[in-house]
């Protein structure tokens, strides 16, 4: 029951983050949305581990947290170097 409500709230959050990912308007906005999607996915995986009673799934969350940080830093470096000019879409 509680788990179902929590999954519902997280689904709504993922949907809202995806709206920002699709709308932009700038590249850093999309990177913020991607970073948020990764954080939400870490929470989702922890919740899924509770729902299925399988603690081993938390390893996936660790890897996802590590990868998403590297991705955000890479995007920030890319944007700061000016390789992609900012544009309003």
């Amino acid at each position: 029951m509680i788990i179902t409500i929590a999954f519902g709230l997280l689904s709504a959050a993922l949907f809202l983050a995806f709206i920002r990912l699709a709308r932009g308007p700038s590249l850093p906005d999309r990177v913020v949305a991607l970073d948020l999607l990764a954080s939400l996915s870490v929470g989702w995986i922890a919740l899924y581990a509770v729902a299925t009673n399988q603690p081993i799934f938390l390893d996936v969350a660790i890897v996802l947290a590590l990868i998403s940080f590297l991705g955000t830093v890479g995007f920030a470096y890319f944007i700061a170097k000016g390789a992609v000019p900012w544009q309003q879409s």
Partner: peptide
């Protein structure tokens, strides 16, 4: 321990990533 490691990692990296991204966005003229 794993849950604590994830939480601590997020607490350390989230501000760093946000600062880098905000600085890059400001410099690129957002």
């Amino acid at each position: 321990t794993q849950a604590l490691a994830i939480t601590l990692f997020l607490l350390v990296t989230a501000p760093v990533a946000a600062h880098l991204l905000g600085r890059a966005a400001y410099l690129s003229g957002v």
